[in-house]
């Protein structure tokens, strides 16, 4: 091996650890405003992901230790867990995580080779296959008379004997669900927004969760773990698309701030769309990638079959990455028109 003989101290493990750390404020707010149930989901997803990763590494003949140490499986598990409804049954969590790690990551070649974001693949598979179970969201504590304890949450998740009345008392439609259902029932946005779930910008509790993810994302940006292009373009895409629609018909389309302050958007903008493996690599490409994902999110939310579109939007943009990268190759030092090779 030849030069260079010195390296910076950074490592994949360090990058992934920072991503996990940046998720902590979001998790804390989640627990504070929605109850401790999410901790069960997170733990279950983590254990499943590590086990799946270990088995797949063994099966593919890779050494387990350096790859388990890189923490990338845990990042996938957490991102999936935070996207799932907080009271989703255990088998839903396990299935989603297994699909993410086994199919979306390892069958595509493992770390660095997957063209789709594994967490989003897991999420997409679940929402397409089990749409009903994917609505078991615990409502914000502020609106819940008798919040679930950690043990009760675990019991719900693991299919324990929980009275239906108790469950009904805590589960609630998310703001995006509420908006979608309301619009389908021919209500105007203003009418829908009078429902108790809605807060200043987004839903009660949800907007704070979004804010916590935003905070964690800004930390990652300040540390240069993620680039500024993807989150900014993603948020801009959402704001502009939603704003455009809202401007023309405020009665039928939600306000841009409302769309922006959904937790899935902040999580998507700073933690999922910024996944380097499945995202664009060139500076301009990152802008296109982020903007496209934002635009598609609003399109899917507005006209698609699902209340939220972040996952599908990102997966669709993942598909476009090779094309985007190829056509956005930056100018190199000393490049002139003559030496510029046409993209082939």
């Amino acid at each position: 091996m030849a030069s260079p003989f010195i390296i910076d101290r950074s490592s994949v493990t360090q990058v992934m650890a920072w991503v996990l750390a940046a998720l902590l404020p979001g998790i804390a707010v989640y627990v504070w405003l929605f109850g401790p149930g999410i901790l069960v989901t997170l733990s279950l997803a983590t254990v499943t992901a590590l086990a799946a990763e270990a088995v797949m590494l063994k099966a593919r003949g890779y050494p387990a230790k350096p790859f388990l140490m890189d923490l990338s499986a845990i990042v996938t598990a957490w991102l999936l867990a935070l996207s799932l409804p907080s009271l989703a049954p255990w088998w839903l969590i396990v299935t989603g995580t297994l699909f993410a790690i086994v199919v979306a990551k390892h069958l595509y070649g493992g770390l660095g080779q997957n063209i789709f974001n594994p967490a989003m693949v897991g999420y997409a598979v679940l929402i397409v296959s089990f749409p009903v179970q994917m609505t078991q969201w615990a409502g914000p504590l502020e609106l819940t008379a008798t919040p679930l304890t950690l043990a009760q949450s675990a019991s719900v998740i693991f299919g324990g004997d929980v009275p239906k009345a108790t469950l009904d008392a805590v589960t609630m439609a998310t703001p995006l669900d509420a908006l979608r259902t309301g619009l389908l029932q021919q209500h105007t946005v203003d009418e829908i927004m009078t429902q108790s779930i809605f807060g200043h910008y987004g839903g009660i509790g949800f907007e704070w969760l979004a804010g916590a993810f935003l905070l964690g994302g800004l930390v990652l940006w300040a540390l240069r773990i993620i680039s500024w292009q993807v989150p900014l373009a993603f948020l801009a895409g959402i704001w502009l698309a939603a704003g455009f629609l809202h401007f023309f018909d405020a009665g039928r389309f939600g306000a841009p701030w409302f769309h922006l302050f959904a937790p899935s958007v902040m999580l998507g903008a700073f933690f999922i769309a910024t996944d380097p493996v499945s995202g664009a690599t060139t500076p301009r490409g990152k802008l296109i990638f982020g903007f496209g994902a934002g635009l598609l999110t609003i399109i899917i939310r507005t006209w698609g079959g699902y209340p939220d579109g972040v996952a599908f939007a990102i997966l669709l943009m993942n598909l476009c990455v090779p094309l985007i990268d190829q056509y956005t190759q930056p100018r190199v030092y000393g490049e002139t028109k003559k030496t510029r090779a046409p993209p082939a």
């Binding site: 010195i6 390296i7 350096p66 493996v277 995202g279 030092y333």
Partner: peptide
């Protein structure tokens, strides 16, 4: 002074190399 370099992992396309490249290339590609 020169500890042995750690074992290599696959490229995760983080583009730190592109940010560091003084020739403004895309080293990951």
């Amino acid at each position: 002074l020169f500890p042995p370099l750690p074992a290599a992992l696959p490229c995760i396309r983080c583009t730190r190399c592109a940010d560091a490249c003084p020739a403004e290339l895309q080293p990951q590609e």
